[in-house]
Amino acid sequence: MNGGEQLLRGRVYGHDHDDPNPGPLPHRTYAELVGGPLDGLLLDIHRWRTVEVDDGVALVTELGRFPGGRALYDPRLGEPRTPGPGVSCRFYYSGETL
């Protein structure tokens, strides 16, 4: 794991690296991002409906093949989800787009 990857691990997507508390909050629900440029980040999915989680996400990033583009992450069909606060599920890298 390089230094950039270590900076991302355990942080919440959208929080700056110099944020005094870039980590998860105990009362929120998160998806762990697996693979790709945002590997190791947590995505806040608190209060998302099941259909929203099922749709996956396209997240803006400067770290991918297309700086300023979007990294695509999707849940895996049939993978269990844990209800409630904490890490509820995983979203897996599926590609990038402009």
Rank of each mutant, 00 (worst) to 15 (best):
F66D: 15
Y13I: 03
H17Q: 08
R28Y: 10
R70Y: 14
R70P: 00
T82P: 00
D74F: 10
P80A: 11
F66L: 14
R11V: 00
G3I: 06
Y92S: 01
P85Q: 04
P83A: 08
G3M: 07
T29R: 08
G69C: 13
L42V: 01
W48N: 03
P67M: 09
G14R: 08
C89W: 06
W48E: 00
Q6F: 06
L43F: 14
R90K: 14
T29Q: 14
P22M: 05
G86C: 09
Y93P: 02
R90W: 07
P67S: 12
G86F: 12
R47Q: 14
L77M: 10
T50L: 09
G4Q: 12
P20A: 09
L42Q: 03
L8G: 00
R76Y: 15
L63V: 01
N21G: 02
V53Y: 05
L59C: 04
G95N: 07
V57W: 04
P80R: 12
L41K: 04
Y13D: 00
H15T: 14
D54A: 13
P67H: 10
R11A: 01
P24T: 11
V60W: 11
G35W: 08
D74Y: 12
G69E: 12
G40A: 08
R49D: 10
T97Q: 14
E62W: 13
R76V: 15
H15R: 15
Q6P: 00
V60Q: 10
V57Y: 03
L38K: 03
R9F: 05
W48Q: 02
E5C: 03
G36R: 03
G35Q: 04
L72Q: 09
R90A: 14
P75T: 03
P85C: 06
E52I: 03
E96W: 12
L25I: 01
G56T: 02
G3V: 08
L42K: 04
S94I: 15
A31K: 02
G56Y: 08
G3L: 14
T97G: 11
G36E: 06
D54K: 13
R81K: 13
R65M: 15
L59N: 02
G10D: 08
